[in-house]
Computed example of a mutant assay.
Amino acid sequence: MNKFFNSIVLKGVVIHLLLFGIFEIMNSTYYLSDTKALLLFFIFYIVTLSLLIWYLSNLAQTANKISNQVDNFLNNNYENLQKSTENDELSTAYNKLITLGHEIEDRQEHLENQRSQLESILTYLVDGVITTDRHGHINLANHAALNLLDQSNEGILGKELIEVLKISDKYSFHDLLQKEPELTLNTVNCEGASVILRVNFMLFRSESGFISGIIAVLHDTTEQEKTERDRRLFVSNVSHELRTPLTSVKAYLEALNDGALADPNLAASFVDVSLNETDRMIRMIGELLELSRMDQDKVKLHTEIINYVDFINYILDRFDKIIEKNYRNFKIKRH
Rank of each mutant, 00 (worst) to 15 (best):
F4Y: 09
F5H: 10
V9Y: 00
L10I: 00
L10T: 00
V13W: 01
I15F: 08
L17E: 02
L18Y: 07
L19C: 14
F20R: 00
G21F: 08
G21S: 15
G21P: 02
I22D: 07
I25F: 13
I25V: 13
S28A: 09
Y31G: 04
S33P: 04
K36W: 06
A37M: 09
F41V: 02
F41H: 05
I43P: 11
F44D: 12
F44L: 15
I46N: 15
I46Q: 15
L52Y: 08
W54Y: 12
S57E: 07
N58I: 02
A60N: 12
T62P: 01
K65H: 08
K65R: 12
Q69N: 10
Q69E: 09
N77F: 00
N77E: 07
Q82R: 13
S91E: 13
T92W: 09
Y94G: 04
N95S: 15
L97P: 03
I98G: 02
T99K: 13
L100K: 03
H102L: 04
E103W: 05
E105S: 15
Q108I: 01
E109G: 11
H110E: 14
H110R: 15
H110L: 13
Q117W: 12
Q117K: 12
E119P: 02
L122C: 08
V126C: 01
D133G: 02
D133L: 01
R134T: 10
H135R: 12
H137F: 12
H137A: 10
I138A: 10
I138L: 11
N139C: 03
A141M: 04
H143V: 10
A145N: 01
N147Y: 08
L149M: 13
Q151D: 10
S152M: 06
E154Y: 06
G155L: 06
G155A: 07
L161A: 05
E163L: 05
S168P: 00
K170Y: 11
Y171I: 05
S172M: 07
L177F: 09
K179Y: 05
E182V: 03
T184Q: 09
T184L: 07
N186M: 04
N186D: 05
T187S: 06
N189D: 13
I196V: 11
R198K: 11
F201A: 01
L203S: 14
E207N: 15
F210D: 15
I211F: 11
I214A: 09
A216G: 07
T221F: 06
T221V: 14
D230E: 08
R231D: 00
R243K: 09
L246P: 02
L246G: 00
A251D: 00
L253I: 07
E254L: 12
D258P: 00
D258G: 05
G259Y: 06
G259F: 02
D263M: 02
P264L: 09
P264C: 06
A267I: 01
V273F: 09
S274P: 00
E277C: 06
I282S: 12
R283W: 09
M284N: 01
E287G: 08
L288D: 02
S292N: 13
H302P: 04
I305W: 12
I312S: 05
F319Q: 13
K325I: 10
K325R: 11
F330V: 10
K331M: 10
